[in-house]
Write a protein that binds this DNA or RNA. Structure first.
Lengths: 159, 159
DNA sequence: GGTGAAACTTCTAATAA
DNA sequence: TTATTAGAAGTTTCACC
């Protein structure tokens, strides 16, 4: 995978767009003392290079009544069942992320639910998948860090 | 936390904006057979209610050379150190998410790095924090599920 | 609630530097 | 690579259903 070189201007443009996708290019241009056309060209290049994959809304799921976050580690009876189990997990609602992992668990996923009762229903669905030997749940009491700009800054300082 | 009621139209608007924040309201209006003004008003209401917190870019970090994802569970010597340790974690780059959790670990975080060596450096920084007793790392071999629209659909079917 | 059109802002692409 | 500019496109407001 080829590395794409970002310069300070690109970094700053991304910074503002990460904060708010709809930041007008004219505003970005004003702040960076370049023209809106330049912003446009640079964003387009990053899109063409695939650096910018797309954009998405950030929703407050708590306001919709879904305050419960948990991580669930899954032990499989046999590694060969990974693909099959993942397909089943893909059909279970409220599972937002799933990774194949090394270490303790074979599969590791994140769920978001209304409350403990609701979460129990989801975890039972996971437990019932054929090939799942056991699951282990870690309930999030508080999401302390989740800053969209952090990673970008880390990478930029690190390059 | 008061629950906000979304109807089918709101849901569809969110759906299109989750997919692409810059979807023109005129396109949404055309698809849903309503006016662009209505789309505008509904989005504004969801913003005012705080359902829509904001928007952000989706970047391909692999293309920037950061392909490595791991989850790190942290055991503390004492729960009273939670706040202190989280503050320290907040200063460590490449930690993208951190939760206070029940279960095996006291704190649970996610890191993104260039490669195993780079990840090792980050994990050592975590290990070195005063109050951290031990850490346990799960390396992601593959991110199999991470669909922005999944949760919205789950919630809408569930309401 | 929703509409439709006018007024305003932003985007985009072509040209020029 | 960047700036300028003008026409296209999108957003927002508002009088009226």
């Amino acid at each position: 995978m080829a590395k794409f070189k970002l310069d300070e201007i690109d970094h700053q443009i991304l910074d503002m767009l990460i904060e708010n996708t709809r930041t007008p290019f004219t505003d970005i241009a004003k702040k960076l003392l370049i023209s809106a056309g330049t912003v446009h060209v640079r964003v387009k290049k990053m899109e063409e290079a695939g650096i910018i994959e797309g954009s998405s809304l950030t929703l407050d799921y708590r306001k919709l009544g879904y305050s419960f976050i948990a991580y669930v580690g899954i032990y499989l009876q046999n590694t060969s069942q990974t693909k099959f189990v993942l397909e089943r997990i893909n059909n279970i609602p409220f599972v937002t992320v799933a990774h194949i992992t090394t270490g303790k668990f074979n599969i590791f996923c994140k769920i978001r639910a209304k409350d403990t009762t609701h979460a129990k229903d989801i975890i039972f669905l996971l437990d019932d998948i054929e090939g799942v030997y056991r699951t282990e749940t870690m309930i999030s009491l508080e999401e302390s860090i989740n800053d969209k700009k952090r990673l970008m800054h880390s990478i930029f300082k690190d390059l």
